[in-house]
Simulated assay, not measured.
Amino acid sequence: MSDYIHWSLAGTGLSLRGCNVDEILSERPDVRWFEALVDAHIVDGGERLHNLERIREHYPVTLHGLGLALGSTSPLDTGYLVRIRALADRIDASWISDHICFTSLGNCFSHEVLPLPYTEEALDHIASRIMQVQDFLGRRILLENPARYLGYNHSTLSEGEFMAEMAERADCYLLLDVNNSYVTQHNLGADALDTIDCLPPQRVREIHLAGYDERDGCMLGGHNNPVREPVWALYEAAQKRFTGTPTLIEWEHDIPDLKDALRDVRRAKRVMHRAQNGLRKPAGVPAQGVRSPG
């Protein structure tokens, strides 16, 4: 299997959304790369694919999905894998990422990122399926931690321990979603800094930043707001451990104007620069708020 990763990809990227394509192409913002949703682009033609190819003429592109269903027990969808491989080849994708989750049960596909129990049995299962997918695609993939709203009583491993061991067994890479880690910490009490400390730096190849929602005491990883201050503080810690790791500002809903999205891109750039140069956080940027009380 080829280690098909564009190691030259660096700096800060942004989610690619159709409403911003024309503005991106006319203004050519200072963004190092864009991330496209797999499931929106595995088509034979049409405007979305055309726009993706237009963006690819000027920027590197990564592919991000939730349809691999690596934690599910249903057979892997080879037709889906064929289409992903064809799209990745067509646009010369820098890498492909998905989630540590199950999304299907039998013939029912949930379109949700559903969490796994963190057990040895689940580790064996998902590692085996990751290896099958990587063999089929001919490249290593990146797997992302989901935002979690429930835990399993029979879990025997922490999230960080599970991710680290999964990456080792499957020989895959990791995508650390800092916003999701903070949401999980708030909802379940799982220490986000412990998760970061568990992950082997050589396996973490991308970081996601996004905004969350709060409803009735529960935190939701909605990816529909600017990055919040506690997540920025956690990102500072992540960049100290995974210095220089490419970082994406992720939006899924309530997409802002491009100029507004670029504010977080620029701030992520500054955090990365400080980590690379060993600089302290400037005055006026709060460091507190990483850990939820209790």
Rank of each mutant, 00 (worst) to 15 (best):
D135F: 01
L66I: 15
A122M: 14
E250W: 10
D89P: 01
E168I: 12
E206H: 13
V178Q: 05
A86T: 06
W232Y: 13
V290N: 03
R148K: 15
A287D: 15
A93G: 10
F242N: 04
Y152P: 03
G244E: 11
S110V: 02
P230L: 09
G289W: 00
E120L: 10
T78N: 00
P282Q: 09
W251N: 13
L157T: 02
T245Y: 03
Q134T: 05
P286I: 05
D44P: 00
Y118V: 00
S158G: 14
S97M: 07
V178T: 14
L220H: 14
V82W: 03
R54A: 14
E250A: 08
G294L: 12
V82C: 02
T62H: 06
N51V: 02
K269G: 13
Y59N: 03
G217D: 15
G46R: 12
R270S: 12
A233R: 07
E121L: 06
D77L: 06
P282Y: 07
C198V: 00
S72Q: 02
H125T: 04
M219H: 14
T156I: 11
A287P: 00
T73N: 11
E165P: 01
S128W: 02
S110T: 13
Q288H: 15
S15T: 13
G278V: 08
C19H: 09
D264S: 10
T156S: 15
P75I: 05
R139E: 04
E168T: 12
G71K: 13
E121I: 10
L63I: 02
T243I: 05
R203L: 00
G67D: 14
V265H: 04
L9Q: 13
L209G: 03
L174V: 08
F34D: 01
V227E: 01
V31H: 05
R90Y: 10
D22T: 15
I207F: 12
L49Q: 05
M219W: 15
V271S: 11
L123R: 13
V290E: 14
E165C: 01
T12I: 14
P226G: 07
A88C: 12
L279G: 02
D92E: 12
W232H: 06
L234E: 08
H58K: 07
R48T: 10
W7K: 14
I96L: 12
L63C: 01
F136L: 09
D197N: 13
D177P: 03
E121Y: 03
D171C: 06
G244M: 05
T119L: 06
E57W: 04
G65F: 04
T243Q: 05
G106V: 07
G67S: 15
R139P: 01
K281M: 09
R56H: 10
C218E: 00
D257K: 07
L9T: 14
A167W: 04
W95S: 07
L63F: 01
P226T: 06
G217P: 09
N107P: 02
K269R: 11
D194S: 09
